[in-house]
Design a binder for these strands. Sequence first.
DNA 1: GTAAATTATGACAAATTTGTGAACATAGCC
DNA 2: GGCTATGTTCACAAATTTGTCATAATTTAC
Lengths: 223, 223
Amino acid sequence: MGKLKILVVDDESRMRKLLKDFLSMQGYEVLEAENGSVAVDLFFATQDIALVILDVMMPVMDGWQACREIRNYSKVPIIMLTAKGDERDELQGFQLGVDEYITKPFSPKILVARVEAILRRTSQTGEADTLEYEGIVLDKTAHVVTINGENIDLSFKEFELLAYFMENKGVALSRDKILNSVWNYDYFGDARTIDTHVKKLRSKMGGSGDRIKTVWGMGYKFE
Amino acid sequence: MGKLKILVVDDESRMRKLLKDFLSMQGYEVLEAENGSVAVDLFFATQDIALVILDVMMPVMDGWQACREIRNYSKVPIIMLTAKGDERDELQGFQLGVDEYITKPFSPKILVARVEAILRRTSQTGEADTLEYEGIVLDKTAHVVTINGENIDLSFKEFELLAYFMENKGVALSRDKILNSVWNYDYFGDARTIDTHVKKLRSKMGGSGDRIKTVWGMGYKFE
DNA sequence: GTAAATTATGACAAATTTGTGAACATAGCC
DNA sequence: GGCTATGTTCACAAATTTGTCATAATTTAC
C-alpha cells in the first residue's frame, strides 16, 4: 500500500535528520517541518499523513499549538517529543488527544516501537507482538523472554538487545549499527560495552546463548 | 449491532473533545452539542442515542433544562457533569431521573466505567462486573476486593490501580500509561506517586502482593 | 610460529531506578 | 474547629543495571 508518511516537526535540523534516518530506515516516508506553523501548512497541503511527531519546544509555534490546530481537523495520531526535565502537561496532552510521549534522548528502537504500536493500533491489525525462534520466545508486550518455556530474567538493555538481534536474524550487525539502534542517540561511550552485554545475554540464555555468534572483525549475528 | 451513540453536551469544545477521545477509544460513536438547546434538537433529530452526557453549567440552556426537555419524551440514560465546587442539586436530579453524576476533573477509567455500567444496566445484559485471578476477586460494582475469600480494604486509588492492573494482566505498563488511565486528566504531578500506591497495594495484598511485578526500567505488570 | 588485532571475561565503579518511611496537603466528617 | 483517611511529595537507602577497564584468550595475517 505504498509507504506510510510521517511528518517530523522539530526546530533542530539535527534532530529532524536523526528521526528521519531512523524512520526511513524502517520504510516510512518522512516529511520535515522546522516549526509548528510550517508543519500545519504542510500537514494540510499533503494527503495521507499517517502520523505526526511533534517537538514540544519550538519557536514561532510550539508543539501544543500545532497539535491543537491539526486536531481541529484531523484525528491523525500524534506523538509528542519532550525533554527529560520537562514538566508533564497531561492536561493539555489529553485534551489535545496526544497518543504517546517520547522523552529525549530516546533510542531508535523505542522510537520505532512506539510508532509501529500506534500505527498498528489505528489500523486495527492486531498481531501478537512476539518474536519467536527455536524455543526462544520474546514477548514485547509483556516484556518477557522464555526459552523452552522457562522464564529468563533480562535487564532492560539486555531485552532490547536480544530483540534487536532477533529482529535481524541472520544479519551480521556491526557494533556501530547496534549502538545506533539500541542505545540512546546521545550515547558516546565505548563500543566495547556491547561485548559485556552480549556476554551477559549469552550466559543468561544458557545453551541457547550460542545463537548469538561472533562475527570476527565485524560484530555479532543471531541465528 | 453497530456502535452505540453517545451525545456529549458541553459548552467548552475542549471538554467535548476530551470526552469524545476517551469514548471513541472505547468504540462508541460520539455526537457533540455545545449547549442544551442544540443538544435537544440533535437528540430528537437523531435515532438511537444510547446515552447522554450533560454538563450542568452551560449558556443558552443549562443541563437541568436540557435534561427536563429530553425526559419529557425519552427515558434515555443521562449522566450529569458537575464541576468540583458545584452544589449538587440532588433533589432536582432525582426528579429529573438523572442516572449518574461525574465530577470534573475525572479520570478516563471512571468515565468509561460509569458509562459502561449504565449501558449494561439498561440493556439488561447483566454480566457480573468482576475481575478474578488466582483467588483475587475484584468486584467493580460493589467496589470490593477479596483475596481467598477475605475482604481487603483498599482506598479508592488503590482499587482503581489494581483494577487497571488486572484488566491488563501480563502487560508491562509504563508509569505514563498508568497515569494516563487511572489518574484524573488534570493531574500534573510526579509519576513516582505510583510507586507509593504500588507499595501500599502490595502490602495490603499480603502474599498476593507479589503478583504486581516490577518491570525494571519500564514500570509494573500484573501476573 | 609469531606478532598484531580482536574478542571474552571478571572485577569494579558509576549511574539509574525503585522501595520506603515520614512529612505534608487535602477533603470529608463528626 | 479538630479528626481521620487518603493522596502526594520528598529524601534517602537499597537494589539493580550499565559502563569501564585491565587482563586473558582467541583469531588472523604474515
